[in-house]
């Protein structure tokens, strides 16, 4: 076992192999956080749509969830990266593949372009939105129906009932499952390596290919994943205790 390998000079992108790991962690976090922004916004909209009395909104929401949940994430990754530029108008597709990569050079020794990053973020974000939507829906549905009736009886309109009664309650209830959804997106971001995004898993594999120190490279990446997971779980536990709704038991899990 030779842990000094990480201090050796790397052939490109960053000074040492430790730099490659740092770059990998940075891009894992960048992809996860950007995708999380999409997932939480789209997921909330779709989740709310599935609880409304409007039949067409419920149908649209259900179609969204079923579509994104029943196609493997890796296949979705290929659909966004390889298929999407070919089925939209030719000029747009060419722009994505030829011009977008040169809009800006990605920082932190990224050896891939803005287009790979965008495709990965879109794919992960919209996929996770379908999971978030289910959590939001069950959060809204877990509150007693009487609250809605009471709100309507007091003269609130339906949007007001959502804004002042249902959503404040639902958001507090869904924080623990949201923690595990974030951990899921964090781990799922490794599928971006298949379209060339050099995130943490990809960097550890690249280090193993360059140095043949596979055990060390994989151990380092695994430890980083564990540390980030633990940090998220512990900091969210503190938040959960503060915002927990009395009478509703929910626990964060690492899945």
């Amino acid at each position: 076992m030779d842990w000094n390998v990480f201090l050796e000079q790397a052939p490109s992108g960053g000074k040492t192999y430790l730099g490659w790991l740092a770059s990998g962690l940075f891009w894992t976090m960048a992809v996860s956080l950007c995708a999380w922004a999409i997932a939480s916004v789209v997921g909330c909209v779709v989740g709310v749509a599935r609880t409304t009395p409007l039949a067409w909104a419920r149908l649209l929401g259900t179609c969204y969830v079923e579509l994104f949940r029943n196609i493997p994430l890796l296949v979705q990754m290929f659909l966004w990266y390889f298929v999407m530029p070919e089925v939209i108008p030719t000029a747009w597709g060419d722009w994505l593949k030829q011009d977008m990569p040169y809009l800006l050079t990605l920082p932190f020794a990224a050896q891939f372009s803005l287009w790979e990053f965008t495709a990965a973020v879109l794919c992960l974000g919209l996929y996770t939105a379908s999971r978030v939507a289910e959590q939001v829906r069950s959060g809204i549905e877990s509150a007693p129906q009487g609250q809605t009736s009471a709100g309507l009886a007091m003269g609130l309109t339906l949007p007001q009932v959502y804004r002042y009664v249902k959503l404040p309650m639902a958001f507090r209830i869904v924080i623990p499952p949201m923690t595990s959804e974030f951990l899921t997106i964090f781990k799922n971001s490794s599928t971006a390596l298949t379209i060339g995004v050099l995130e943490l898993t990809a960097q550890s594999r690249q280090i193993s290919e360059y140095t043949f120190k596979t055990f060390e490279a994989f151990t380092a990446a695994t430890l980083i994943y564990i540390v980030v997971t633990m940090t998220v779980i512990f900091s969210m536990r503190a938040l959960e205790r503060r915002v927990a709704v009395p009478g509703f038991i929910a626990q964060a899990s690492g899945r």
């Binding site: 599928t191 898993t201 994989f218 997971t229």
Partner: peptide, 16 residues
């Protein structure tokens, strides 16, 4: 441990 790492990372581990 298995639940903390990505599925792909686990595949790489056992493949190795």
């Amino acid at each position: 441990l298995i639940r903390a790492i990505p599925f792909i990372m686990a595949i790489f581990w056992f493949y190795f």
